[in-house]
Design a protein around this nucleic acid. Structure first.
Lengths: 186, 186
DNA sequence: GTCTATAATAGGATAGAC
DNA sequence: GTCTATCCTATTATAGAC
C-alpha cells in the first residue's frame, strides 16, 4: 500500500464505505478511485482482480476486524450481560444508529453474489456463532441458543432494511434495545 | 400495453422478477427487455422514464396488489389467528421460502433510492399498519401492537438477507413459524 | 406499437511513460 | 507506485422506418 499517502487499513475502510453506501453494483471504479484518492491504475495495482477483488478484500478485512475486536472479546472473563451491552453498543456505532447499511447485505444483493458466496456465508456464521457462544455462556439451553443467535442477526439486518425504507431511525434503536433485553433472558 | 402479446400485469410481474433477482442497479435494460419480450423501444414506449419509471410502476403495482389481496382481507370477519396463518403463508409463497428477494429491499439498496423514497416509505407503512391492525383486533394492547408489527416486518426482511447470505433456507421457515406463534400472543 | 440502427455515455480494465 | 491516455464493451436512451 502507499507508504506515505494512506495505509492499507484506510484504503479498505474507504472502499467499504463506498460499497456500503452505493452497493456493489452501484459503486463505480471512478467513485472508488475518488474515495480512496488512488488512480484507477493504483487500484488495479493493489487489487488485480478489479472491483470484485476490492470487495473480497474489504470483506475479508472486515471479518478479521470483527473477530479480533468483537467476537473474540465475547469469550473473555466479563459477565455475559456486560459483554452483550458492549456488543450491542458496537453494532449501534458500526451502523451509526441505522444510518449506514451492512456490507454483507450489499454483497448478498449484488449481481456478483456468487463470487462472494463462501466468504459471505463465513461472515454470517462467525457472527451467529459468536452470539450463540454468548448465549451458552449465560446459561441459555443449547437447543435455543442457536435459534436466538440467528434471530439476533436476522433482526439487526432487518432493522437496517426497514430503517432505510421508512427513514425512521428509531426502529434500529428499539430493535437493539429489545435484543439487549431479550437475548440472554430465561 | 401490448394487446395480444402480454398483459400489463404480466409485464410488470416479469420486470419485478428481474429487479428482485438482479437488484435495481444490476438489472440492465437488455435483461429487462429479454425478460419481458419487449424491445427496448417498446419498453420506453410504456415507461418513458426508463428504468426508474419501470421500478416505480412495478412498486406501485405491487402496493396495489398487496392492498387488495393481502392487507384488505386482514380486516374481514375471520378469526385473527386464521388471518395470521393466511398472511404468513402468503409471505412464504411470495418469497418462495426465502429463495426470492424483496423488491423493497432491492430498491432501498439502489443508487437511485432517493427517487423511490416516498413510495418505499408508503409500502413499508402499509405493511406495518396491516399487521398492526391485526394485532389490535386480536386484543394486543395498542402500546405494543405497533412495535410487534414493526418487528414482524423487520424479521421477515432480515430473514431474507440472512437466508441469502448463509444459503440456509431453514432460517426463513423458522422465522415465519416463530412469527406466526408469537405475533398475537398475550 | 414494434423493429433496426445508432447515438452518446459510462463502465471496467489495460498500456506504457515516468 | 502512480500517472495519463486509451481500449473495449455494456449501458442508457433515441431516431426513424414500418
Amino acid at each position: 500500500m502507499p507508504a506515505p499517502l494512506m495505509s492499507r487499513e484506510e484504503v479498505l475502510a474507504r472502499l467499504m464505505a463506498r460499497f456500503r453506501a452505493a452497493g456493489y453494483d452501484g459503486a463505480s471504479l471512478a467513485e472508488l478511485s475518488a474515495a480512496t484518492g488512488l488512480g484507477k491504475s493504483s487500484l488495479y495495482h493493489y487489487f488485480p482482480g478489479g472491483k470484485a477483488d476490492m470487495a473480497a478484500q474489504v470483506l475479508a478485512h472486515l471479518d478479521e476486524q470483527l473477530s479480533g475486536a468483537l467476537y473474540t472479546p465475547l469469550r473473555d472473563k466479563r459477565a455475559p450481560a456486560r459483554k452483550l451491552d458492549a456488543l450491542v453498543q458496537a453494532i449501534d456505532e458500526f451502523y451509526e444508529g441505522g444510518k449506514k447499511a451492512c456490507l454483507l447485505e450489499r454483497l448478498c444483493a449484488s449481481v456478483n453474489r456468487a463470487a462472494f458466496r463462501r466468504p459471505l456465508a463465513r461472515a454470517f456464521s462467525s457472527w451467529i456463532e459468536a452470539v450463540e457462544g454468548l448465549c451458552l455462556e449465560a446459561g441459555v439451553p443449547a437447543a435455543t441458543a442457536h435459534a436466538r443467535a440467528v434471530d439476533f442477526v436476522v433482526r439487526v439486518e432487518g432493522a437496517l432494511v426497514v430503517c432505510a425504507g421508512t427513514c425512521d431511525l428509531t426502529i434500529f434503536g428499539r430493535t437493539l434495545d429489545d435484543l439487549r433485553r431479550s437475548l440472554l433472558a430465561a
